[in-house]
Amino acid sequence: MSETKLRESICMFGRSLFERGLTPGSSGNISLRLDDGGWLVTPTNASLGFLDPARISRLDATGRIISGDAPTKEIPLHEALYDTRSSARAIVHLHSTHSVALTMLPEIDPKAVLPPMTPYYLMRCGQTALVPYYRPGDPAVSDAIRGLAGRYSSVLLANHGPVVAGDTLEAAVFATEELEETARLYLLLRGLNPRYLSPEQVADLVKAFGVSLPADDHAGHDHEGHGH
């Protein structure tokens, strides 16, 4: 796909996410990794609902801006996920309501934020990790994501929002939406003793769709993402 088309796709998906209330105001950011190692990334203080393709930030492989507006200050978290997941070609970061709410609950397991509630959550997200709260733009969040060693394609930043990688922009967007809807389901069912997928049902999905779960992996391996 040409760079022009990629720029247009960032704007199209950004507008879709914004118009459905999945990231308010000027929150959220999207990046795409290009074949030359550089990136396209949404600008700082830009609403995802009103992006201009010509003003998308273009960075080279060293992170130096080549053209467009100044990039989002969240570059470190994007960079950390790209560096630890070799298959990642796109990353979506939102401030979606239910995903943020989930991070504040006391019972959440940082290694598996959500239980296996639906097949599409497992197929698109695998499992989701939770990292502690850091001030937005703090380089320490990059270290926290690197500490996950590429085992997760979807990560929740405490009191902040999801960061989701995919092998295409569409895959990253769809996985982010699936994460948000699953968080919403969890909050709706919390305290009602719902029936989740059984270990046997999870194993069947893993076998049928090649789902990669962190518990099945070896720490430190450079993982291929599923996010599709």
Rank of each mutant, 00 (worst) to 15 (best):
M12T: 14
L192G: 14
D109K: 08
D35N: 10
G126C: 05
P43M: 07
D83C: 05
R184Y: 11
R146Q: 06
P132G: 12
I30C: 11
V202G: 06
E3N: 04
L185D: 03
D217W: 15
V173H: 01
T84E: 04
A219V: 15
A172N: 04
H93M: 02
A158Q: 10
Y133A: 07
L40S: 10
S99M: 00
L157W: 00
L114S: 11
L105F: 12
Y152N: 02
A46G: 15
P194Q: 05
G137R: 09
D222L: 13
E79K: 12
E3V: 07
L48H: 08
A61M: 07
A215E: 14
S99K: 02
Y186W: 15
H221R: 14
P71I: 06
L32E: 01
D109C: 13
V41H: 01
P115T: 01
L17M: 11
P162I: 01
E180L: 00
W39M: 11
S99F: 03
I66W: 00
S2K: 03
A46L: 14
Y152S: 05
I10E: 01
V131P: 07
P132A: 08
P24T: 09
P53F: 00
G28N: 04
L81V: 06
G225I: 10
V113Q: 03
L102Y: 11
S47H: 05
G225P: 06
Y133P: 12
H98K: 08
N193A: 15
S27Q: 00
I10F: 10
A208C: 13
I145K: 04
L205T: 04
H160S: 05
E224Y: 15
P71L: 02
L40A: 13
L188H: 12
L156F: 14
I65G: 12
V164G: 04
F50E: 09
G210Y: 10
V113M: 07
F13T: 08
T103M: 03
S16P: 15
A54F: 14
A140E: 13
D109T: 08
V41I: 14
T176R: 10
L32G: 05
R124P: 06
I30P: 01
E79G: 13
A80R: 05
H78M: 07
V211S: 12
M123V: 05
R190E: 08
G25T: 07
Y152E: 04
S9D: 04
T62G: 13
Q127R: 09
Y196E: 09
G38E: 00
R58P: 05
L6N: 02
R195N: 13
M123I: 10
R7E: 05
V211M: 12
L213S: 08
D60P: 00
P139G: 06
K111H: 07
R7W: 00
A61N: 06
Y121G: 13
T176Y: 02
